[in-house]
Nucleic acid binder design. Sequence first.
RNA 1: GCGAGAGUGGCGGAACGGUAGACGCAGUCGACUCAAAAUCGACCGACCUCGGUCAUGGGGGUUCGAAUCCCCCCUCUCGCACCA
Length: 880
Amino acid sequence: MTIETIAPPASVGDTPRYDFRAAELRWQAAWNAANCFAVDDVPTDGKPKYYVLEMFPYPSGKIHMGHVRNYTLGDVVARYKRARGHSVLHPMGWDAFGLPAENAARERGIHPARWTWDNIAAMRTELKRMGLSLDWSREFATCDPRYYGQQQKLFLDMLAAGLAERRDAWVNWDPVDGTVLANEQVIDGRGWRSGALVEKKRLSQWVLRITDQAPALLSALETLDRWPERVRLMQANWIGRSEGARMRFALTAAEAGLDSVEVYTTRPDTLFGMSFLAIAAEHPLAAAVAARDSAAAAFVADCQSRGTSEAVLETLEKRGYPTGLEVINPLTGLRHPVWIANFVLMEYGTGAIFGCPAHDQRDLDFARKYDLPVTAVVCPPGEDADFAVGSKAYDGTGAMIRSGFLDGMTREAARAAAIAELDRLGVGQGVVNWRLRDWGVSRQRYWGCPIPVIHCDSCGVVPVPRDQLPLVLPEDVTFDRPGNPLDHHPTWKHVNCPACGAAARRETDTFDTFVDSSWYFARFCSPHADAPVTQAAVDHWLPVDQYIGGIEHAILHLLYSRYVTRAMHQTGHLSVDEPFDGLFTQGMVTHESYKSVDGAWLYPEETQRRQDGAVVHRDTGEPVTVGRVEAMSKSKRNTVDPGAIIARYGADTARWFILSDNPPERDMEWTESGAIGAYRFTQRLFRLVEAAPGSVPAEPATFGAAARALRRATHRTIATVTEALEGFAFNVAVARVYEFANAIGEAERAGNAARAGDGEGLVWAQHEALQALAVLISPMMPHLAEEIWSRLPGTDGGLVAQGTWPVADPSLTAAETFTIAVQVMGKLRGKIEVLPDAPEAEVIAAAEAEPNVVRALEGRRIVKRVYVAGRIVNFVVAGA
RNA sequence: GCGAGAGUGGCGGAACGGUAGACGCAGUCGACUCAAAAUCGACCGACCUCGGUCAUGGGGGUUCGAAUCCCCCCUCUCGCACCA
């Protein structure tokens, strides 16, 4: 199959051809001229609003199939909702800050701004060729000072409201990218971009206090009933609420001024089973011990250099260092050793735990390795109190043993009693602990939004005065050495303090780019305003009614956006708490992968499928190994360029295939044959229209059988396509259109014979069908829809894009006769045709008389007759 | 380990508890053609004595009736994971 043979001439012989190349450009121009997709910041048209948004792209330079899928899905929704009478906000912009631009600068000497804006221009052209119904007047890029200057205002508001603060913190340091990463950006201990092992480093940086909102962010998940369940679960797990106790263990001897260690535990009921206390390598007490004990210092250094992934790779090897210190258990009065342990996380709880080996697997592994005591305090049901603890800790329920005043209690009762006792002793209390940590937003990067503050030796942190915003990035930067170019800039950071006038230092860190994408949906409502948002616009449009994007943003982007929306509410910018009312997560676009004989990955267009099915190299004819079908990636070269597909088959074909293949939430496989199939269908629809009678008669008073059947197909299709689109079942909508096209084709073929008896009724019905067809395909194949519409007589020249969605007439969708399945004991034995109003007795009598059913009933006695109107008869029989 | 989701023809997938496999892709046969492409038509789960029998990962159950609801098991995918 070579591609060139498919590329269509305008016509072949007598067969008319749809010239998509000319038509798609023509209709895009027509939409543009009619300004079909623009809406006002605050519309006064009285229509219900609908805000549909797809995750805006990073301007990498080219669009990929994932973009095509994402924006096609969004465009189907936008066009459908518009036709249903909504005023639809459907904007597009660019998530334009980020590291790749700096890498381009380092590798190729192109300025990040230049690289980014060139990429945006190229991608805008590609997106426009898809025929998306976007309001391009709202386009912006986050790297534009008109955007990020507004973001700086937002930050100053958050700073003033106490939502942002500067803090010394242990941070995740990516040594390859040379920057800090948020916890969310560390995956398996590696940087999400670079893949480098992340190190721990203590740095002063800006944080947004997202943990303050942890309870609200968790509880509001329940209200997001138009979000996928699994995204809500992922967020809930990430926020990670747990109930437990925070308590202090007194040290028997103070160390560097520290006289106790604070611990967080979810199991205060097991305090009588304690055998040691363990602290993280980054814990202040560990630092104090390391200061005087070189072996401890070596152990601490070792733990920190390994990073978190090392622990995973070493299959959970527990290691520790005994400090020689001891603590006293406040409930038992017993002394226990203090260890530094590599499995204790400084970031969670207090960075210290008490170890109860009998009832915690990690503690047990540690105790066995270092030969520490193991005391069981919860008795598993059916065991006696002296049961042996082997290598498996018991974390179930049971009665308390060896636990003083807790003895005999259930686990839950013991937990409450232990907390009450800790409280009475003044050494602890019950607390709720969160896994979520504050969001560090400082990045040591040039190509990001400058953080608008100035550091003054006498005044401290001073906000950049608002009349000096936007604080614009300097253009004259160099990338000839590692580190932050803003920091290296000769003059940029040297400023006078706005408060006291003394020499001061400008902040050289820029924001994490996730800050940029955490409020862009609000900016789209009034993108040209001289404030972050305008109240009337966001009040009208927010929340986003339907947000569409990849599942990979289930945590990072969506959680940050939820938080910033709340922060903007607190600072008076918004009046909603949740940004996205509905969320749809699409699957990935996948493709077969190919390898040549020498093991190199090959692009699909470098391969060829021979007649016998074997795949060979297009140029050399050497055999090619067909690999797995997997997500398109540059490294595996299993990518297909949307630009080439659109040039070859048209935007409508690409859109139709990507919608038709499977449900949009699942991964789809891009295949050339599938795309060709979609292309053929566009031509087939075109031929259907060309074959239709050239003028529309007046609507007749009555219709013959063929016309009635076609009208029934039309109105049923209107109903089923509408239902499918409402439910995001776009592949089903596509299937219904195929069925409809088959029905129209049959009517056309039957036409000459039928018209003889049916007169003009069939012609009228054919036009009704074709007009409905044009509108029904318009969300999916908008250009072809316009082309069809414009060629049909009686459509008076308007645009489908400005038309209205058809309504199914229920009186026309009902069948004239019903096929009733007849079962005997639940097995299908025959079918009968009945009229819709046939009484039950009559239907059952007819069913019993059906020859096949008679045979099946032979020699048996009917004990029960089940009739479901319009569907089925079932005879329950007895005897042989 | 914890959590979630999914298992239906060669493939992608349809199916308010009611005729399983719609629709498409691939394939087979035929028409048209000198021929090919395009197009049009027919067929297309397995077995079969042509009347049926078996079929929705496996095993139970509920029901007149189960791909669908319940229980157990298997497999795969994804997410989280030393979170105390």
